[in-house]
Amino acid sequence: MRRLQVVAVLSVVAMLLTGARPGETQAPKQPYRIQSTAVAPVGVSALSGNTGVVEGTVLFSGSVPKRKPLRIETEEEVCLAKPHFDERLIVSARGEVRNVVVSLENPPPGSDPAALGSEFAVHQRNCTFVPHVVLVPVGVPLKVYNHDGILHNFHALGKRNRPFNLAQPKHRKVLQRKFRRPEIVPIKCDVHRWMKAYVVVVDHPFHAITDGEGHFRIEGLPPGRYGLHFWHETLGELEKQVTITAGQVTRIKVTYPAVTEPSY
Score class of each variant (00 low, 15 high):
Y226E: 02
L89S: 03
C127E: 05
P222I: 04
V249W: 01
R21D: 07
N153V: 02
V44L: 12
L142A: 07
A246F: 01
G212A: 10
V101G: 02
G212N: 14
V136P: 02
P22C: 06
A258C: 03
K173I: 13
E237S: 15
L175K: 05
A93N: 14
S63N: 13
R177A: 06
N146Y: 11
T74P: 00
R98L: 14
V7P: 00
V58N: 03
N165M: 10
I184E: 02
M1W: 09
E105N: 12
V191Y: 12
A20K: 09
H204Y: 07
G214T: 10
A81C: 10
V102R: 01
E77P: 00
V259T: 12
G158A: 08
P108H: 13
A14C: 11
F230Y: 10
P28V: 03
A27Y: 08
K159Q: 14
P41S: 06
A156K: 12
A121V: 07
S61P: 00
Q248I: 00
A14L: 14
H171I: 07
R162G: 02
Q5V: 14
P113C: 13
A14W: 03
R160C: 01
T74I: 11
L59Q: 14
G56L: 04
E219W: 04
V64H: 10
A81N: 14
A14V: 07
N153C: 10
K66W: 05
E237M: 06
L16S: 09
L17N: 06
P109M: 05
V91M: 01
L16Q: 09
E87L: 09
T250F: 01
K29N: 09
G212W: 08
V122S: 03
W231E: 09
I150D: 04
H204M: 07
F179K: 04
Q5E: 14
P83R: 09
F85D: 05
P108Q: 11
E237Y: 08
